Simulated assay, not measured.
Amino acid sequence: MNQRLIDAHIHLDMYDEAERIHLMDSLKDNSVNALIAVSNNYESSIHQLELSRSDSRIKPALGYHPEQQLPSEAEVQSILKLIDENHEKLIAIGEVGLPYYLRKEQPKLEITPYVELLETFIKKAVQWDLPIVLHAVYEDAGMVCNLLEKYRVSRAHFHWFKGSDDVLEKVLSNNYVISVTPDVTYKPKIQRLVKQTPLSQLMIETDGPWPFEGQFTGQTTQPSMMHESVRTIAELKELQPEVVYREIFETTKTFYRIMN
Rank of each mutant, 00 (worst) to 15 (best):
Q3K: 15
R4W: 13
H9K: 04
I10A: 02
H11W: 02
H11V: 00
D13E: 07
M14P: 00
D16L: 04
R20T: 00
K28N: 12
N30M: 09
N33T: 10
A34H: 12
L35N: 01
V38F: 04
S39P: 00
N40H: 09
N41P: 01
N41D: 15
N41C: 12
N41R: 10
E43T: 08
I46R: 13
L51H: 03
S54C: 03
K59C: 06
K59M: 06
A61Q: 01
A61G: 08
H65S: 02
H65K: 03
P71I: 12
E73M: 14
E73D: 14
A74S: 13
E75D: 09
V76I: 15
S78D: 14
I79T: 08
K81C: 11
L82H: 13
I83W: 10
D84H: 13
N86M: 09
H87W: 10
K89I: 03
L90P: 04
I91H: 01
A92Y: 04
E95H: 06
V96C: 00
L102K: 12
L102R: 15
K104M: 12
K104Q: 13
E105S: 13
I111H: 08
I111G: 04
T112Y: 09
P113H: 08
P113D: 07
Y114L: 04
E116V: 09
K123Y: 05
K124Q: 15
K124E: 11
Q127A: 07
Q127M: 04
L130D: 01
L130E: 01
L130H: 02
I132K: 02
A136I: 03
A136K: 09
V137S: 10
Y138L: 12
E139A: 11
E139R: 14
C145Y: 07
N146G: 14
L147Q: 12
L148N: 06
K150D: 05
Y151N: 07
R152D: 05
R155S: 01
R155Y: 03
A156Q: 06
H157E: 03
H159K: 05
H159E: 01
W160V: 07
F161V: 07
G163A: 10
N175S: 13
I178L: 06
P182H: 07
D183P: 04
V184I: 15
Y186L: 09
K187N: 13
P188M: 02
K189W: 02
K189G: 03
Q191D: 11
Q191V: 13
L193C: 01
T197Q: 10
P198C: 10
L199S: 11
L202Q: 03
L202E: 00
E205H: 07
T206E: 06
W210P: 00
E213M: 10
E213R: 14
Q215K: 15
F216P: 01
G218F: 10
T220R: 11
T221Q: 08
P223R: 08
M225I: 05
M226Q: 08
V230S: 05
T232M: 15
I233F: 09
A234H: 12
L239A: 14
V243H: 14
V243T: 15
E250S: 14
T251K: 10
T252Q: 07
F255K: 02
R257M: 07
R257C: 02
R257Q: 14
M259Y: 04
